[in-house]
């Protein structure tokens, strides 16, 4: 049986189409990202009340939780894009996977560093070898591994395949991060947002957090698109459309 997808679905795989549409979308996404971040940061830093136990150090939540969520989402995106590229041999999927890796790595660093800084006043230690922290550190190393592997090959196609396979294998780590706070005894507090329940904190605390999470997602979209645009041109520079773009820049 042959499955027929709508036209736009096939166009997703076309480098030229991606380049055109992302160029139109990008300015709007940048505006939305900046607005979300400004609102989220001012609300979280200036207007949200302090925590009755942790005082003002809890304000680190507005960058720690979004960066931790994003580091994992970005990893899943990278692995899924890699799989799509492996299975259907789609160029665009490999481009997205390759461009996601360094962004994800830097966001994982943000989650680890802000977590360490938050840990000091809250737990009395910068770092503990606890399940949540260790699995997040492994996530960072997986990103580094994918980046290293993809740059170790002279041939682009082999680099794409190898890093996609590594990204897929590393996917096991994602549920481990998620459930680490439930499976093991840990210092780390459980998830702030759950699908099934209302957050345990008052709304004037979690609404800015939600705004920051959305802002981080938009930020990822902006940087990923912008990176992927350059990477697309780089790989397609022999195509006529790419030559026209380069000439007219």
């Amino acid at each position: 049986m042959k499955v027929k997808f709508p036209r736009w679905f096939y166009q997703l795989a076309s480098p030229k189409w991606f380049y055109d549409i992302s160029g139109k979308l990008l300015p709007w996404l940048i505006v939305v990202t900046v607005l979300l971040m400004i609102v989220g940061l001012t609300w979280g830093l200036v207007f949200a009340p302090e925590d009755y136990q942790q005082g003002n150090s809890f304000r680190i939540i507005y960058i720690h939780v979004p960066s931790a969520i994003l580091a994992q989402s970005c990893y899943m995106l990278m692995a899924v894009a890699g799989a799509v590229g492996l299975i259907w041999k789609i160029k665009m999927a490999h481009i997205i996977a390759k461009c996601a890796a360094p962004i994800g790595a830097s966001i994982a660093v943000m989650a680890l560093a802000t977590g360490a800084i938050w840990g000091k006043p809250t737990w009395g230690a910068w770092w503990v070898w606890d399940a949540r922290l260790t699995s997040m550190l492994i996530l960072f190393f997986l990103y580094v591994g994918v980046i290293a592997l993809s740059s170790a090959f002279e041939n682009k196609a082999s680099a794409d395949k190898a890093s996609a396979v590594l990204a897929l294998v590393g996917l096991v780590n994602i549920p481990i991060i998620k459930y680490s706070v439930e499976w093991w005894n840990t210092l780390h507090q459980p998830a702030t947002f759950k699908v099934t329940e209302k957050p345990a904190m008052p709304s004037e605390m979690w609404i800015p957090l939600l705004i920051m999470v959305l802002g981080f997602y938009c930020f990822l979209a902006v940087i990923l698109m912008a990176r992927a645009r350059t990477e697309t041109l780089q790989r397609e520079k022999r195509a006529d459309w790419a030559k026209t773009v380069i000439e007219n820049y």
Partner: peptide, 25 residues
């Protein structure tokens, strides 16, 4: 606001790292 109770150093250090990574990207 700058002092953040007794946590000014921690809060601003975190937000500094956040800004650095956003700008770096």
């Amino acid at each position: 606001f700058l002092q953040m109770g007794k946590h000014g150093l921690y809060v601003w250090l975190s937000y500094g790292i956040f800004l650095t990574i956003i700008i770096y990207n």
